[in-house]
Amino acid sequence: MELKSLFLKVNNELENTENRRVSRKITCKKCGKQVSVSKIRKNFFICPECGHYFPVRARRRILMLTDKRSFVEMDRDLESKNILSFPEYEEKILAAKEKSRENEGVICGTATIGGSKVCIFAMDGNFMMGSMGAVVGEKITRLFEYATKESLPVIGVTVSGGARMQEGMVSLMQMSKVSAAVKRHDSKGNLYIVLLTNPTTGGVDASFAMLGDITLAEPGARVGFAGPRVIEKTLNQKLPEGFQKAERVLECGFIDEIVKRPEQKDYIDRLLKLHGM
C-alpha cells in the first residue's frame, strides 16, 4: 500500500508542474536517481536514467497518440452515482476527481492519427485505479456504438485494477455490456486496436482489453486476470520471475507486439494505413 501511494504521488508531482516553469527533480522509484521533471516529460514519461515507464494520465496519453489539436472529447459530463449507497463511495469519487482532475476513469472521443480519423479511449489510473464502474462501461460502449455507426476504427488504451467494487454487480456487468458493443463493431468489419498498459487486470482484462483485432502492450506492463497475491495465496508458492509481464504474456500467445512509448503513434499510424485508412 505504501509503495502504491508513493507511486501515484510521483505521477501527480510530474503532472502538477505541467504549467509551471520549474526545474524540479524527483526520485525515480526504480533506479533511485534524481531526475528532472522536465526531462522526464520530454522523454515520453520514461526515466532518462534507467528507462522506467512512469504512469501517464489519460488526457496526455491521447495527446501522445493523436495528431495535434485533433481530439474532440465525447461524453465528458457523465459522472458516477452511488447506485448501491455503498459506504464511503461518494468520498472516494470526490478524491479521485481531485487527484485525476477528470470526471471519471476513462476519456473518449474522436481524433486523427496521421490524418486518419479514429475513435479513441484512454483509461486513467489516477481515477480509483482505473476501475470500471457504470460510467466507464457506458462511455466505452457509446464510443464503440458511435464507431460502428460511422465505420471508424477504435484505438483503446487500457489501465485498470478491474471492476469497481462499490458498484457491485452493476460494475461487473459492464464487462458484458462493453463486450457486446465490441462484438457489434467487430461484426461490421471494423478495426479495434488495443494498447495494454501497466496494469491491465481483472474485469477489464477479461473483457474489452482481450478483444482487440490487434493487441499491443507497453514494455513491462502487468497484464492478467487474477491478482498476484490471490494466486500466491491459492498456490502457496512464489510466482516465477516475469509472470504476468507483457513480455511473458506475449510468449504465451496473447499479445501481438510490445511497442515502446516513443514509437507507439507511428506504429499505430502504420497499422491504420495497412488497413487502408
Binding site: M210, L211, F225, I231
Partner: peptide, 19 residues
C-alpha cells in the same frame, strides 16, 4: 487463479464467452 490458468489466457477465455 493459477499460474497455468493465467498463462493459458483466463482473461481472454472469459472475454471470448461474453463476446
Amino acid at each position: 487463479p493459477g499460474i497455468d490458468a493465467e498463462e493459458r489466457g483466463q482473461g481472454r477465455a472469459i472475454a471470448d464467452c461474453l463476446f
